[in-house]
């Protein structure tokens, strides 16, 4: 069981991610945007962060940059949930400090497989 933070402004996407991961026994917290995610991350140490790219208030890229300035989030896997399969868009996330990505659409099995891959 891992502590996972799911960040997405879309309640349906967030719900799907959280539901799936909880079903697999993980302890999932949710945040609606990057700013709320950073706030949540300050209070708890997550093993994995899954975040949408396009969000109001603070987008996913700024969120990753912010998290990577926190010593306790050094090395913590952060995956971007992106609809972009273009390399340059993925690389933007990587450059900001993301670990990798999961391309939308994904179904619960793909999500679980990716999470398992990251958490080992």
């Amino acid at each position: 069981m891992a502590k996972i933070l799911a960040v997405d402004d879309s309640a349906s996407m967030r719900g799907m991610v959280a539901f799936t991961l909880r079903g697999a026994g993980h302890d999932v917290s949710e945040a609606e945007n990057g700013q709320l995610a950073v706030d949540a991350a300050k209070g708890a140490r997550f093993d994995l962060v899954l975040a949408d790219v396009n969000m109001p208030v603070m987008d996913g890229l700024s969120m990753v940059r912010e998290l990577r300035t926190m010593p306790e989030y050094k090395g913590v896997p952060i995956l971007m949930l992106t609809t972009e399969s273009h390399t340059d868009k993925k690389m933007e996330g990587k450059a900001a400090g993301a670990t990798g990505w999961l391309v939308k659409p994904f179904d619960p099995e793909q999500l679980l497989a990716t999470v398992k891959r990251v958490l080992g």
């Binding site: 879309s10 349906s12 396009n54 969000m55 609809t83 659409p105 994904f106 179904d107």
Partner: peptide, 23 residues
């Protein structure tokens, strides 16, 4: 930006929840 975000969310959700035509 706001318009883009809204379209982007719909696209992502549509693809995820099984509405490929909408995506």
């Amino acid at each position: 930006h706001g318009i883009f975000r809204a379209a982007h969310s719909i696209k992502g959700g549509a693809a995820t929840f099984g509405f490929p035509d909408m995506a």
